[in-house]
Design a protein around this nucleic acid. Structure first.
Lengths: 239, 239
DNA sequence: CGGTTCCTTGAGAGAACTCAACGTCGGTGG
DNA sequence: CCACCGACGTTGAGTTCTCTCAAGGAACCG
C-alpha cells in the first residue's frame, strides 16, 4: 500500500471533502468504471480512532451508511449474551463495511477501527436508489458481496489451528503486506476471535512457525521467511 | 413446503419447459416484482438424482449457469488435497446455487443433489447482461448474496457442538420443516462436515437432545418437542 | 512511575476426534 | 426368496488437540 495515512491523520478536518479521487487503487471511488457514481455518494469522514467509543456501526441500530475503507483496518463483530466479542471480519483498504446488512432494516454486527483508519461513508438510501440506474454500480456491489461470501466460506471450514493461522497470515499479507513483511494491525486476541481460536493458541501457532523458520515474529511485525511452506499448509483453505 | 415434486419426477422430460410460474414462494419467478425478468432467463432442468455422478457444478470448471432450487436439496462442497469433502452450504427451495462464483471465471465449489431435486438453470452471461437493465433483478441478486453471506458468517462463529447442531436443526426446520417435524434430507456425515464436527459428534448431540426430551429422533425424521430450549441454546448463533 | 493491556509460556482440564464394533437398512444378485 | 454387501447410524473407549487457568515480562499511556 503506497498510500500513507499520516498526513490525513494530522491534518485538521474542518470540512468533509468529497471522495472522488480516492488514492486507494482498490477503493471503488478510484475505479474508473464506478468513480462517477461514487463521487456523488461518498463523503470522507474524519479519521477514525481505534476503540469501542467510536463505533462505525452498531448491531441492532439502523444502518444509514455503508463505509469504504481508505486506510487502516476496521473490524466487525457481534457480542453474545455472555458479553464475549466475536470478530466476524476485518476490512482493509478497498473493502466495503456493512454489506451483510445492505437492504436490511438493521445492522447485524457492530464495527470499529482496529487502528487509526480513514473511511468514506456511502448513504444506503441514495446507494440503493442509484443502484437502479447504474448497472456498473450494481455489478460492483454484487462482486464485493460475493467476494465477502467467498472469504467467509473459505475460513468457515474445518481446519487445524496452524492451518487457520497460516491462512490468515497469507490473507493479511496479500491485503496489507509488502514483499515479505507484514505489520498486523490487530491483536492476537482479535485474530483468535476471528479464527475461532484462543489467544494462546494463536501465539503457539506463531511460535511453531518461528521454530520451523517459516517466519520471524517481532510482536506485530511478521517477516515471512518461507511463504511456500505456509501456503502448502494453508492450501485446503485456499484464501 | 406444499409443493410436491413427485409428478415432476415421474413425468417424461422431452422438452425443457420454461419456468415462469415457480411454485416456490421465495423463487424469483414466483415473485411478481422480478417474475418477468426471470421468465425469459430460467429453464427447468430434468430432475436431479443424488450422488456425485450427476454434478450441478464442478470446482474449477467454468460456470455457465446459476441454479435456483425448486424442490429437494442441493449441497455445495470442496475436496481438499487429502480427498476429504467439506460441505460449504445446503440449498433448499428458493435458494440460488453458485452465487459465490457469480462474475468469476471459474466455480470455486462443486454441487450435487442431496436428495431427488428439481432445479432451474439461469445462464450467467444473460443474467449479468440483464442485470444492467433491471434494477429490481440486481437488488434481488444482491439480497440473495447478502443473505448467503450472513448465514455463512453466523455459522462460522466459535460455538460448541450442541449449539451448532441445535442451530442447524432450527435453520433446517425454518426452511423445510412443518409444524414440529423435520425430515432431514442429508446424512449425519454431511451435517457434520457442514458444521465442522465428526459424524459421531452430531449423533451424540442428537442423543443428548433426545435424552433431555427436546426432540425425538427416528433416523432422518426429527420431531421437535422443545423448540424454545433449542432456540435458547442456539441463540448466540442466531440463524 | 503505577496501571493496564498485550504477548508469551507452562500445566492441567475438557471437548471433540479417532478407532472400533455392532445393528439397521436398502440394493443387488445368486 | 434370501444371502451378501455397502452405506449409514449409534455407542463405547481411549487419544489428542485446543481451551482454561495461571504467572511473568514487555509495551504503552495517563
Amino acid at each position: 500500500m503506497a498510500f500513507d495515512i499520516a498526513p490525513a491523520l494530522t491534518a485538521p478536518h474542518r470540512t468533509v471533502p468529497r471522495c472522488g479521487c480516492c488514492p486507494v487503487s482498490s477503493c471503488p471511488a478510484h475505479c474508473a468504471q464506478t468513480a462517477d457514481a461514487w463521487q456523488d455518494l461518498v463523503s470522507l469522514l474524519p479519521p477514525l480512532r481505534p476503540g469501542h467509543n467510536n463505533t462505525l456501526m452498531n448491531s441492532g441500530d439502523a444502518l444509514p451508511a455503508l463505509y469504504t475503507v481508505r486506510a487502516g483496518c476496521i473490524k466487525s463483530y457481534t457480542i453474545d449474551s455472555q458479553g464475549n466479542e466475536h470478530v466476524r471480519a476485518f476490512f482493509f483498504p478497498g473493502d466495503l463495511v456493512g454489506l451483510e446488512a445492505l437492504g436490511k432494516t438493521y445492522a447485524v454486527a457492530s464495527a470499529v477501527a482496529v487502528t487509526h483508519s480513514q473511511v468514506c461513508a456511502v448513504p444506503v438510501a441514495q446507494l440503493l436508489h442509484k443502484l437502479g440506474n447504474d448497472p456498473k454500480l450494481a455489478a460492483h456491489l454484487l462482486h464485493k458481496t460475493r467476494d465477502a461470501l467467498e472469504l467467509a466460506l473459505a475460513f468457515s471450514g474445518e481446519y487445524s489451528a496452524d492451518q487457520r493461522v497460516a491462512a490468515f497470515l497469507l490473507f493479511a499479507h496479500a491485503r496489507i503486506g509488502s514483499e515479505n513483511t507484514l505489520l498486523l494491525p490487530m491483536t492476537r486476541r482479535e485474530i483468535g476471535s476471528y479464527l475461532r481460536l484462543a489467544t494462546e493458541t494463536v501465539c503457539r501457532a506463531l511460535a511453531r512457525f518461528e521454530q520451523k523458520n517459516w517466519l520471524a515474529c517481532a510482536d506485530k511485525r511478521i517477516t515471512l521467511l518461507n511463504i511456500g511452506a505456509l501456503r502448502e499448509l494453508a492450501e485446503p483453505i485456499g484464501v
